[in-house]
Amino acid sequence: MTRLIAVRLLFGALTLWAVSVVVFAATQALPGDAAQLILGRDATPERLEALRDQLNLHQPVAVQYTQWLQGLLQGDLGTSFSNRQPVADFLESPLRNSLTLMGLAALVATPASLAVGAFSALRRDRGFDHTSSLGTLVLASVPEFVVGILLILVLGPGGLDLFASVYSRTGGPDQWILPALTLALAVAPPIVRMMRATMIEVLESEYVQQARLKGLDERVVLWRHAAPNAIGPVAQVIALQLAWLAGGVVAVEFLFNIPGIGKVLMDAIANRDVPLIQAVVLLIAGIYILVNLLADVIGLAANPKVRVSARRAAPRAGKVKVTT
């Protein structure tokens, strides 16, 4: 298993590198440059030249990229073009806001959708099951910012006026409720559906029938016999959804005006602030890779076949394929 994780981390690093190349190339393709945008329309050619020199914009693209990569390998994310602050310092507070939002959404969405999915499986083809399957279908087909707007209209100041709909530095904890709820509703449907399908399969299995024929209590059958066998495949979907959060947070932050990495990214793109764009994109990609790795580890750990053979014969673990 250790080897598996090491290999996956290596591939993760490769992915990050590829992402950084693509993003760097994309920023070069954008019209205009950082110097022009910083100084504005009225800038004199002399001042533009001076700023370009200062930002190293004259050097060939490859050199610019290599310099940035060298800095990164030394743990230096570079300096933002537009506000002349080190990127790492500048990102600290937005990152904390975004992680709070994502964490809240994940904390709400995961257990709730697992419970709804499992309960739908138990109530298969009855009222609750039909309702939840229709509800998840509708939620899955509506974009998250529409869900957010609807929530604002109903629960926000326009409707029942229960929660604040715009972030402010002085606001209380209740300002997180609507954005977190929006994100949670956006990620929940696939988890609910996967949990339902997997649970139905597991509940029909012979070992669950055998557990019932052993005279076990229905709760024991569910939690001891059925749930552990359902968790592996569902963990994969949860991971995909939570990883999606890292990117999906952008639109929701914009909607609720939360100063998170999503907003930083949009401003950075508008300013052609290459070091900042690179840092934020790599961060999002990194979260994506880590969450997926975590899901694979959970999936493997839930499968005793892999777990035991990995312990006994460590070199073979690398060959183990993830079965979903």
């Binding site: 012979e206 055998q210 052993k214 209590d217 552990p228 076949k305």
Partner: peptide, 25 residues
Amino acid sequence: GVRRLRGRAVAYIPQSPASALNPAL
């Protein structure tokens, strides 16, 4: 009562133990 019956008064041995034993326990 049915639960109390099963495993105590009547027990069942399945056709295919490979699929009737829980793989995760």
